[in-house]
Amino acid sequence: MPFSVPVVDITPYVAGGDDAARAEVARAVDRACNEVGFIQVLGHGIPEPVTDGLAGAMDEFFGLEMDAKREYRTPAGINRGYAPPKTESLSLSLGVESANRMNDFFEAFNVGLAASDFPGVEVDPVHYAENTWPDADAPGFRAPVEAYFAEAGRVARTMTRIFADALGVDASVFTSRTDHSLDVLRMNNYALPAGTDVRLDGDLTGMGEHTDYGIVTVLWADRVRGLQVLGTDGGWHDVSPDPGALLINLGDLTARWTNERWMSTLHRVKPPIVGGTIERRRSAAYFHDGNADALIEAIPTTVPAGEEPLYPPITVGEHIAAKLAGSREGRRNAPGRETARVLAARDED
């Protein structure tokens, strides 16, 4: 069967729907999570002016001179602010050694929920770092980014309500572990200065193969080819969103939670070369990762009788810290169950 990303309209969960309509959405999401791990979501309710505003804000910041952008760089252990090109290698988060370690050429800017967003809750200030805003150099950046952040967070929480119904568990399974969730919006820009060598090989990769770390990712992206998903056939397949759609994919914590009834999806980015240069591509990934102190262990109904869970319990914070140490600090993470899938993959190009 040809590879495709299922399209699911979640309007019954966003704008109100009867039990039958919601049940059909939950069944469709269950199939997509079980078979592909990526979903194209329509009916999400994010107004087009909000996504247009996000795109404009990204253009404003990423259009700055490099020296100005570097002023907003934060230490590797702080998942906020600016990350220049070739300072990360996402494949190391899986324990996969790259030919040239820090070779992903995308640049990014991260914002997220901070300790100040949860007054009265004791949280780790490293995980919940305060944001670094480029107000002095990009005054039009913050407001539209905050507007999109709020909308994407709403969609992520809607997806976890659908997940609970699809899995046949009470919604509190998710809500009790996400009331001070580690949520981060990562805005990515794939472009290189004129004259840069653009061979997409071991020395230069858009974004290396990886799984997302948390519960669910809400992805807005240009309709520019580059995102590739590893299918169950072992091949990499191009994916781009339909008009007006958001891409939804699962993270490692959901794979652990569901004992791999649903799997986190391996993906990478290889933007096309057009006329000797890389065609520019933008994306914004909202990572809904769960409370840093939440313990994630397999939902009992997902573990067959007489068997042990595939993963030991782990806290969200421990898992995220290990993954970030690989991608941002260059320390190869311990190989996991996904690593073998990457090493066995074949290119379809």
Rank of each mutant, 00 (worst) to 15 (best):
P134E: 02
A194H: 14
P144F: 11
A255M: 08
G168V: 07
A143H: 11
S116F: 07
V126F: 03
T254F: 00
G153P: 12
V218N: 02
L64F: 01
A298L: 07
R281E: 01
P272Y: 07
G276A: 00
H127F: 10
R256F: 03
I78S: 08
M102F: 09
A83D: 10
P313S: 09
A57I: 01
A191Q: 12
M159D: 06
D59S: 14
H237Y: 08
E338R: 15
P271D: 03
P49H: 10
L54Y: 02
N100Y: 14
E146H: 14
E297Y: 04
L90M: 12
H127D: 12
G231V: 09
V14C: 03
E107A: 09
G120S: 11
S176R: 13
V25N: 08
L54I: 04
V7K: 11
C33D: 10
L200H: 11
L90Y: 14
A143P: 04
T277R: 14
F118D: 07
A164G: 04
T196A: 12
W257S: 07
V239K: 03
G37D: 03
A55Y: 13
T315E: 02
N291E: 06
L343D: 13
D165K: 12
F141V: 04
A171P: 08
D289K: 06
G214L: 04
T87W: 05
W236A: 07
S327Y: 14
G317P: 02
P49K: 08
G208M: 02
V303S: 09
T160I: 15
E297T: 11
R27A: 14
I10V: 11
V274T: 11
T160C: 02
G244I: 05
T232A: 15
P243G: 09
L42I: 11
A305K: 14
P309F: 01
G195L: 00
L253E: 03
R70T: 12
S176T: 13
T175G: 13
G306M: 06
V184W: 02
D242H: 11
D9A: 09
I296A: 09
G63H: 05
